[in-house]
Design a protein around this nucleic acid. Structure first.
Length: 502
RNA sequence: CGGGGCGUGGCGCAGCCUGGUAGCGCACCUGCUUUGGGAGCAGGGAGUCGGAGGUUCAAAUCCUCUCGCCCCGACCA
């Protein structure tokens, strides 16, 4: 028995943030890079991103969107065309001022002073400005509308403090940008895409989310309204998992995005933008994983099952390996991602731990006893049912014949079990609260607090200052209910969700 | 930018207080025995101690400066 402390990750209960870091590093999702604040997304992490892209991109296409690509660099002056927007992003923009290196006096290289750009370029923190500059060129008539574009890209925001996946200086994301003839239509688009995000989060990532509107102080710089989906992590903190903005005509006016309507009159377009980022990978990790390591919902997993062969001697090994290879072939042919761990250098127990660390949804054990019975043992990463008397882990016997169907059924069970578990966790950590003192005390434990709010930023600011909690959203499906503002006692007609957030 | 911590074989650390020329665990390589929950034994390879300067006969260790990274906080997806 090896020393556990060295191999085990930091328990969640001991240090949540260290636990998260351990998972990301040990499951090889990402690693720190030589560039401060920038991470390397390793193959295991990138595979999650690819699956996310595949699923979301399909949903975008199904709602009529098409992909395009706009430049990484944006003329500095573009950013200042929309007053709120520049204020929101100015502090975190990387600026390109030169286009050439030259020899530096100390023997290294430095920007060649003769190569200074006439107008500095910024590295996009988001692409509203450059995309809408193009829209003003492309859109002339109501017949050109709606424009429904999306781009998959990297963006840079020079944040002071970074955290793997959750906040890095450079990150990958998707940004949708649409233009419409009427506000009614653009608002419908905002809600439609928020719905796409919510569906993706819940059905693919198995992460339940609240849909709602951001308060004034939390909304996107330059938007009329920001809607969002909010998820709860296992430490009770909220994480914004996606946003969809109603930009109104703010950018259309700044970038002259106009069209002639049926009557020949010039109108400004109504625009939306919406995005999700690699941050969702962080959400995935924090929503499902445990002290054994990463937990990946089957629909997000590139590898659905790992086969671990077990044998005692050479003869047994040959028999088992033959059956294992046949099993792998059968599962692969059915479209499942399968790895056969045929390493002879580590023990089965070691493999169990290693694959659990990496979050593979199901382990298939196959040994001499199983081969004899024409079966294998399936162990889901997280139990899909209550454990029986004396059962330490859920183990199901799967027939080798018909293994694909049986495995798919188990994967479906696991997918819904993960969602149910996450939803139950959120419900267990959601509270209706009316007393500010109780709130100040209870917020320390984390969770979502449904409380009344009068609607003033002053109250929001005060609560934030005193408790570090913010309004995560004003939920769409919150019922009307008269009450008193948590902070000032003023009139309120519905509850909003307060929480500490990432 | 404030507070804290850390830089020593690939990884995690000890050694530093009280200077004497580098050690442990994991990983790696070889061999034998093992294999249904992180295997055992034996042997082996691998480090100009983040960098610069200083003190000293002698610096991982003491002094000064510097660079980098991580964590916590303010800002944010």
């Amino acid at each position: 028995m090896a020393k556990r402390d060295e191999k085990a990750i930091t328990p969640q209960s001991e240090d949540y943030s260290q636990w998260y870091q351990d998972i990301v590093l040990r499951a090889e999702l990402a690693d720190y890079s030589p560039v401060k604040g920038c991470m390397v997304i390793r193959p295991n992490g990138y595979a999650l991103w690819e699956n996310l892209q595949k699923a979301l991109d399909g949903m975008f296409k199904a709602t009529g969107h098409v992909n395009a690509y706009f430049p990484l660099f944006i003329p500095m002056s573009f950013l200042s065309k929309e007053a709120e927007h520049v204020e929101g992003f100015a502090k975190e923009c990387a600026v390109v001022t030169h286009h050439r290196l030259g020899a530096s006096p100390d023997g290294g290289v430095c920007p060649d002073p003769d190569s200074e750009l006439e107008e500095p370029l910024i590295v996009r923190p988001t692409s509203e400005t450059i995309i809408y500059a193009m829209y003003s060129k492309w859109i002339k008539s109501y017949r050109d509308l709606p424009v429904l574009l999306n781009q998959w890209a990297n963006v840079v925001r020079w944040e002071m403090r970074t955290r793997l996946f959750l906040r890095t200086t450079e990150f990958l994301w998707q940004e949708g940008h649409t233009a419409h003839a009427t506000h009614e239509e653009s608002w419908a688009e905002v809600l439609r895409m928020l719905d796409v995000y919510a569906r993706f989060a819940e059905e693919w990532m198995a992460v339940p989310v609240l849909k709602g509107v951001k308060s004034e102080s939390e909304k996107f710089a330059g938007a009329l309204k920001t809607t969002c989906i909010e998820a709860m992590m296992q430490d009770g903190k909220a994480l914004q998992a996606g946003t969809s903005h109603d930009l109104g005509q703010n950018f259309a006016k700044a970038f002259d995005v106009k069209f002639q309507d049926e009557k020949g009159e010039w109108q400004y377009c109504w625009q939306t933008s919406w995005g999700v980022s690699t941050r969702l990978i962080g959400a995935l990790v924090m929503a499902h994983s445990d002290d054994q390591g990463l937990v990946v919902p089957p629909k997000m997993a590139a590898t659905h099952a790992v086969i671990v062969p077990i044998y005692k001697d050479e003869a047994g090994r040959a028999r088992v390996m033959e059956a294992a290879a046949a099993l792998k072939a059968r599962l692969s042919a059915a479209g499942l991602g399968v790895v056969l761990d045929d390493r002879d250098t580590v023990s089965p127990g070691f493999k169990y731990n290693e694959w659990e660390m990496k979050g593979v949804p199901v382990r298939l054990e196959i040994g001499p006893r199983d081969v004899e019975q024409g079966a294998c043992v399936a162990v889901p990463r997280v139990a899909t049912r209550a454990l029986r008397e004396g059962e330490r882990r859920q183990k199901e016997s799967l027939p080798l014949e018909g293994a694909p169907e049986a495995l798919k059924a188990l994967l479906d069970d696991l997918q819904s079990a993960l969602f149910r578990r996450a939803l139950a966790f959120r419900e267990d950590h959601s509270y209706r609260i009316d007393d500010y003192e109780a709130f100040q005390r209870d917020i320390e434990k984390g969770g979502f607090f449904w409380a009344h709010w009068c609607g003033s930023s002053a109250c929001e600011d005060r609560v934030k200052e005193e408790t570090k909690a913010t309004i995560r959203c004003i939920p769409f499906d919150g019922e009307k209910e008269p009450g008193k503002c948590l902070a000032c006692g003023g009139e309120s007609d519905r509850r909003v969700v307060w929480a500490r957030a990432y």
